[in-house]
Simulated assay, not measured.
Amino acid sequence: MDFDDLLLRYFGSADLASVPPGAQVAGIEKMQVDLGLEQDRAKRFALWCVLHLLDAAPDLDVAFKDAADRDAARNFMDLVAATGQEQD
């Protein structure tokens, strides 16, 4: 899954700053629903990563049944934190 394609699919624009707040909320909600329905591990991981960047990801134990997927998500969180891109 391409990051820009995900943004276009859920928010109608690859430039999140141009998306109105209401459309951002709706896009996040749709992405969360799709995460819950997605069966493909790679697609689930991609959706979770974008949701994490948007501070809207579910907890790891909720999102991932497989321990390897949870470990990969922790690694992603560490990488994001190391770049200083994570917003708290």
Rank of each mutant, 00 (worst) to 15 (best):
M1V: 14
M1P: 13
D2L: 12
D4A: 10
D5G: 01
D5N: 02
D5K: 04
L7S: 09
L7D: 07
L8V: 03
R9H: 03
R9W: 01
Y10K: 07
F11L: 02
G12K: 11
G12A: 08
G12P: 06
S13M: 10
S13G: 10
A14H: 09
D15C: 13
D15L: 14
L16R: 02
S18P: 11
V19P: 11
P21R: 13
P21Q: 11
P21Y: 06
G22P: 08
Q24A: 03
Q24V: 06
Q24C: 04
Q24K: 12
Q24M: 09
V25S: 00
G27L: 04
G27V: 04
I28V: 13
I28M: 06
K30G: 00
M31R: 06
Q32L: 06
D34I: 02
D34P: 00
L35P: 05
L37T: 08
E38L: 01
E38D: 00
Q39S: 05
D40P: 00
D40T: 01
R41M: 04
A42P: 04
A42N: 11
K43L: 05
R44T: 03
R44P: 04
F45S: 10
F45K: 11
A46E: 08
L47F: 08
W48Y: 03
W48M: 02
W48I: 03
C49E: 12
C49V: 11
V50N: 01
H52T: 07
L53G: 11
L54Q: 07
D55G: 05
A56K: 09
A56F: 01
A56Y: 01
A56V: 05
A57C: 06
A57P: 05
P58Q: 02
P58K: 02
D59S: 06
L60M: 09
L60D: 07
D61R: 15
V62P: 07
V62F: 11
A63F: 01
A63D: 01
A63Y: 00
F64G: 12
F64M: 13
F64Y: 11
F64N: 13
F64L: 13
K65I: 03
K65M: 03
D66I: 14
D66K: 15
D66W: 12
D66M: 14
A67H: 13
A68C: 07
D69Y: 12
R70F: 05
D71F: 09
D71E: 14
A72H: 08
A72K: 14
A72E: 09
A73Y: 02
A73L: 05
R74I: 12
R74Q: 14
N75S: 15
N75A: 15
N75T: 15
M77A: 15
M77Y: 09
M77F: 08
L79T: 09
L79V: 10
L79S: 10
L79G: 06
V80K: 12
V80C: 09
V80F: 07
V80E: 09
A81E: 14
A81V: 13
T83L: 07
T83G: 08
T83E: 06
G84N: 05
G84K: 08
G84D: 04
Q85P: 04
Q85F: 12
Q85D: 11
E86H: 15
Q87L: 15
D88W: 14
D88G: 14
